[in-house]
Design a protein around this nucleic acid. Structure first.
Lengths: 211, 211
DNA sequence: AAAAATTTGTGAATTATTTATCCAGTTTTT
DNA sequence: AAAAACTGGATAAATAATTCACAAATTTTT
């Protein structure tokens, strides 16, 4: 990373989108792209794209634009998705199945090492070829395996307890799908995927479509 | 709504969170709350909460604070979740199952009227007690039923085509779970739930935890 | 009943984000 | 090989979002 200032969250949330489009361009064998062309695809201003990227260094070249493959790689590096991450999923419900089976992860370095549930009828069943383990074994599992990310797919009542267990187990990040906000040490990153919040925002905009 | 200016998206995205916490307070029989107390729970500033709410009207009272139940109702009204919404889900995979079975919706006025898939092995199976229909019947279904929201759970290759079909069918909003950005008429609201973008943001923050 | 303590709503100040401008390299055209 | 066209990076300007500060209204305490 070129500069040491804190990058705003708005910028960070655009990076995955940039990367996604660059991936599509690679598939289409597009070798280079200018901020202007890219802005037309993405619907941002060219200036914003240049500003965003310049937070991390000058990846482009005057008169040429950006090399698509290189920029894709640079953004991957910035985000930190050039390496593997080991995950556990707690709560082996439909959402867990959706996440575990999501083909994307299999190609992208996210490895689900363990699935846990508390329900005896679910423990022992298989999800994506992996046996669901008893939640009581989670502590042990975290001690014996190097896990980076814990995914919380439980109901809201159980989520905070699971978060605390994951925290004790030495996890670095929590991906929280449960519809609550978790309280954990600030050294642990929590990313919420609040499904109903998203639906509520949709409904708001449907009712106020003049924008 | 008190004022007629466009409300910023940052405000709108905080409303569901406010509402969620107010719901919890109602359960705990808390009758009133000040912006200061609320700010301590939520981690926003009291001023921001007051500013946000004041975009829609003065729901509080000096010296008292906000009536929890009333504010919950007001936010529900602002978001537009006092009424029922009819949904179809396209792509009857695990994610569709996760969404369809998510107990929250059953209590909150979101009614799934139809599930569609293109795969003959999936057509006819049941999800949450509803038969999955053949995707070729979608046009007809949309003509004969008043559907508000289309949920796209397909892979990214199919998503745009589905969006166009939903658009023709007269849908008002699209909840897009596929990892692409859709192009539809601007009268149709699209809310993206980009799962991998969320995971990528998590990974970024795990690698830059000094924030 | 008066005084003290709360607490909102709002305008102003501050901070953050986005957009515009322009200079200096590159590439493309002639 | 020179001229023209293009384009990123950096800085400045404009816009937007957040926080501050305080009068006015209400509740609580004395």
């Amino acid at each position: 990373m070129a500069k040491n200032e804190k990058i705003s969250s708005a910028v960070i949330r655009r990076l995955p989108r940039y990367r996604r489009y660059l991936g599509e361009l690679i598939k289409k064998d597009v070798a280079r792209i200018s901020s202007k062309e890219f802005s037309e695809i993405l619907g941002y201003t060219a200036s914003q794209i240049r500003q965003d990227l310049n937070n991390f260094g000058g990846f482009g070249q005057q008169g040429y634009g950006y090399n698509v493959k290189e920029l894709h790689g640079q953004i991957s590096k910035i985000l930190g998705i050039m390496q593997e991450y080991h995950l556990v999923i707690v709560g082996a419900n439909h959402m867990a199945k959706a996440l575990a089976n999501y083909s994307y992860y299999k190609t992208a370095g996210f490895i689900i090492d363990g699935l846990f549930d508390i329900n005896p009828e679910i423990i022992g069943t298989e999800i994506d070829g992996k046996k669901v383990l008893d939640y009581v074994e989670l502590d042990n599992f975290l001690q014996n395996n190097k896990i980076d990310i814990g995914v919380i797919c439980t109901n809201k009542q159980s989520a905070q307890g699971v978060a605390e267990k994951l925290e004790k187990g030495g996890i670095k990040g929590i991906w929280n799908i449960a519809p609550v906000d978790l309280v954990v040490d600030k050294s642990i990153q929590v990313e919420n995927l609040h499904i109903s919040d998203s639906l509520h925002a949709l409904v708001y905009y449907m009712n106020h479509e003049e924008q």
